[in-house]
């Protein structure tokens, strides 16, 4: 059950001369939700984006160390596009394409070579159902996705990410642009998805980390200060800095 999905060993990451991550070591267990917390600019999102190599898009970004996905080094001899299929991502702001809901969700499967209309219909429906948005949009699936509310858009984004059948789901502050009702819907959804996916969620919301995550890592200035079970980190932080942060004394 507690199989390790991702193993991070000795990761150092630089943007130009600035070191954004310092010697990160951690194991992310399968079918668990791991939360990354910490003040802005502490490296949470950077580490998240290293896990599906979205940092490759930044020109002066250098990384050293090892990240193993099911034992395979994702920075060596690997097709980045296939890696990103296995490790999906949901971004901070809903970033749907200016297309219909259907085309948005079908974009991923189409990218990976599925052409059959029947199969695509099935995948789109299944993904929307999984993201608990199907009932709200099933009547206007061919309409523009941009006409939906922010919360709905973010759930479509999750559906879109699920449509390529990833194993890991990276979520970069997925609720920071949403209202409380939409936020709680997404949180319920995340808990639901845990059974089938390994989820890593970056959040600025302490309560959210407590509500959804099994494990929590606290980041500060590019380092992991503490990484333990969510319950114990919040009830009994070992490090003074963690305690100060989660009790709201800074950050």
């Amino acid at each position: 059950m507690n199989k390790e999905k991702i193993k991070i060993t000795g990761i150092d990451l630089y943007y130009g001369d600035f070191q954004a991550l310092k010697n990160i070591n951690m194991i992310l267990p399968q079918n668990k939700i791991t939360a990354f917390i910490g003040p802005s600019g502490c490296g949470k999102t950077t580490l998240l984006k290293s896990l599906n190599r979205m940092n490759d898009l930044i020109s002066d970004c250098r990384i050293s160390g090892e990240i193993l996905l099911d034992g395979q080094n994702i920075y060596e001899n690997i097709d980045v596009n296939l890696l990103r299929k296995r490790v999906g991502m949901v971004f901070q702001k809903p970033n749907l394409f200016p297309m219909s809901i259907y085309d948005n969700v079908a974009y991923g499967p189409r990218t990976h070579g599925i052409r059959s209309k029947v199969m695509l219909d099935e995948i789109v429906e299944k993904s929307l159902v999984r993201a608990v948005i199907w009932d709200e949009v099933k009547d206007r699936i061919k309409k523009s996705a941009l006409s939906l509310s922010g919360g709905q858009q973010q759930r479509i984004c999750i559906a879109r990410a699920l449509a390529v059948e990833p194993e890991v789901l990276l979520m970069d502050e997925p609720t920071s642009a949403l209202d409380p009702v939409s936020t709680s819907k997404i949180e319920e959804l995340v808990l639901e998805l845990k059974n089938d996916y390994t989820i890593i969620i970056v959040t600025h919301n302490m309560q959210q980390a407590v509500r959804v995550s099994d494990k929590t890592a606290f980041f500060l200035l590019g380092e992991i200060v503490e990484y333990r079970d969510t319950e114990s980190i919040f009830s009994m932080p070992e490090d003074k800095r963690t305690e100060d942060y989660i009790t709201g004394r800074f950050g």
Binding site: N81, L82, F91, Y107, A161
Partner: peptide, 11 residues
């Protein structure tokens, strides 16, 4: 963000 979303899906 469009480009990111597309790359993020493995395109």
């Amino acid at each position: 963000s469009y480009r990111e979303a597309s790359f993020g899906l493995g395109a």
